[in-house]
Simulated scan of single mutants.
Amino acid sequence: MTGAQNAAMTRLAAIVFALLVGLTARAGEIALRPSARLTPGAPVTLGDVATLTGDDAAALAPTALDVRRGSDGAAEITVEDVRAALDAAGVNWGRLTLRGSVCAVRAAEPTPATPDAPRRARSRDEPAAVDLAGPPTVRTRLARLVARLYGVTPDNLRLRFDERDAEFLSTPESGRRIEIQPAATPNASRFSAVVWLYAGDELLGSRSVRVDVRVRRPVVVLTRALDRGDAVTPDAVRSETLWVEPAGSAMVGAVEDAVGAVARKRLDAGAILRAEALEPPIVVRRGELVTVHCVSGGVVVKAKARAARDGRAGERLELRMDGSKKTFVARVVAPGRAVVNLDAPASLAEAAP
């Protein structure tokens, strides 16, 4: 190896070492506090009951925790509860330490009412559009990120920030680098993230931010109630564009995606249809003779077989040919019709007689 190559390898090793040191510096500690006073009925998060030291720990602040009742009936969160919640979130324990025992959860004292409190409460209840004009700030950077993650344009997005974060959110980007790390999958009505501010090689600070989200989307609304098992007909639905909370399963966006499906449960008139509330109709009945298209290379052979159970379009269904003791699996594609690929052994599951 030449001298120039040795020098290049030395520089590369120095860069890798610096990156590793930087990553290690982001590791942290989670210390469960002995007690915490929280608003009754409000969700409890890790940041409410623990002191978080380091960037990795701060990023976990929005993690939701369950409150249990101790032997004396008092509300509490144990270190085992915290560990279980973080395990479920996929935390890297090689970069974190957890200490503490039990955090006693007590109700916070109510804030004295003031004459204008109702007016302020109403104004906080309504998420609002974020003005993206002017120099970028932490607030506008967050708004653009949320719009992209939720799959809408900024004019179809409304946000509500915590008043306690107002000064931090107004921090201008000029002369700084803003890094935003989402704390969870963006599919709920509340978005959580950790924001870091840098100036050159200096970390100016970090903060956990929570945002209530509303999006404007095309949705499908029921014009009349449906009982479980009822088929969705064209006269039972209409298309609208509404401001909605993006929580729960995906919403049905087009009437044609709903018509023909079957209600999994009773649905009231005026309900916005979500994918989880519908299922494909049954197109093959148990014992029905089904035409099976058996595909192998460029050859297709059609045969008859009986369904072992009811089947819906798209489902893999067990079938048996008359006179045979063995069953096989094919995919239902239409009423009375299924397809099996004989070149894919995994798709042809034969069962013992």
Rank of each mutant, 00 (worst) to 15 (best):
A42V: 11
A113P: 03
P112D: 10
V82M: 10
R33Q: 13
T114Q: 15
G70V: 09
P40Q: 02
V79A: 15
V130R: 09
A129R: 15
G41R: 10
I77V: 15
A128K: 14
L60E: 03
G41H: 06
A36Y: 03
A104Y: 08
R69C: 04
A36V: 05
A57D: 02
T137Q: 09
D87P: 04
P127Y: 01
A36C: 07
V82I: 14
L52T: 01
R122E: 06
A128G: 04
L38R: 14
V105A: 05
S123I: 03
T140R: 06
P112G: 12
A59L: 07
D56A: 15
T78L: 08
A85P: 04
P136G: 12
L46K: 07
V49F: 08
I77G: 02
P110H: 01
A85F: 09
A121P: 01
A113S: 13
V67S: 08
V102F: 06
C103I: 04
R119F: 13
C103R: 02
G47Y: 00
V67G: 07
V49D: 00
A133H: 14
R69I: 11
P118D: 04
L98M: 01
D131G: 10
R139N: 09
G70Y: 06
G90A: 11
P118L: 04
W93L: 03
T39N: 11
T114I: 03
A113Q: 11
P136R: 15
T97M: 01
P62H: 05
A129K: 15
L46F: 09
P43S: 08
G90T: 03
